[in-house]
Write a protein that binds this DNA or RNA. Structure first.
Length: 209
DNA sequence: TCTAATCTAATCACCGGCTCGGTGATTAGCTCATTAGA
């Protein structure tokens, strides 16, 4: 068996196109299907002038679409129950004038495509949530930057106030502070005349005034 | 336990309507798919 695999390593056949399949599903390791057989089949169909029809039990190479009525009935049945028991399959097939195999295949495809659609919807929802989260993060970062800038301004002002208080010269800080105490008395808090109340809020927030 | 039926996932190939998507059909399954009935 191993020798056979070495001679016909179809299981290890890697086709670059396998990386481009829908949903990216076939790119997984160990999922390189033996496509050589399919290629042989296709080649036989193309070159055989009908010889290919003998493959797969002589199936009709022409595909016929199911009628709207048939599809509607199948859809109804699918909505009722996505799995198909034998009895239901036979009954449906007889009712629709189809081969039971066709009904089974229709259900298989319908399940696969339904799942694929659900996955797409789920992906869209997750992407939307992700985008919203990114936007929110940007807003938060902007807010943090703004707050940091205000903090720097507040700290600069505080430094100026402290140096003015230490010097005790009653000097005008930013031209808006009037020292109420006498030069010889102990320091008393200056009387502030802020244009921007937000600075006071920040100072009080940090217990500085 | 064996076996037939059935499943999923991937893919092919046709067809209608404008280059590609929808859909019916086929194939493999690998420490060899799972499941259900005899």
């Amino acid at each position: 068996m191993e020798q056979f695999d070495e001679l016909f390593p179809s299981a290890y056949y890697v086709d670059s196109s396998s990386l481009l399949v829908p949903n990216g599903g076939a790119a997984q390791e160990g999922d390189q299907r033996p496509r050589a057989r399919r290629r042989r089949r296709r080649a036989a169909r193309c070159s055989g002038g009908g010889g290919g029809e003998q493959l797969d039990g002589g199936g009709d190479p022409k595909k016929r679409r199911l009628s709207d009525e048939q599809v509607e009935m199948l859809e109804l049945s699918f909505r009722e129950e996505r799995k198909l028991e034998t009895g239901r399959k036979v009954h449906l097939a007889a009712e629709l004038g189809l081969d039971p195999k066709q009904v089974a295949v229709w259900f298989q495809n319908r399940r696969a495509r339904h799942k694929s659609k659900l996955l797409e919807e789920e992906f869209a929802k997750l992407k939307q949530a992700h985008d919203a989260a990114i936007l929110h993060k940007c807003h938060l970062e902007n807010e943090v930057m703004r707050l940091k800038e205000r903090l720097v301004v507040a700290e600069e002002e505080l430094t100026r106030f402290r140096s003015a208080a230490v010097s005790g010269d009653g000097g005008d800080v930013m031209g808006r502070v009037v020292c109420g105490g006498s030069p010889t008395s102990s320091f008393s808090p200056p009387d502030y005349a802020y244009a921007d109340n937000s600075v006071v809020e920040w100072l009080s927030l940090y217990g500085l005034v």
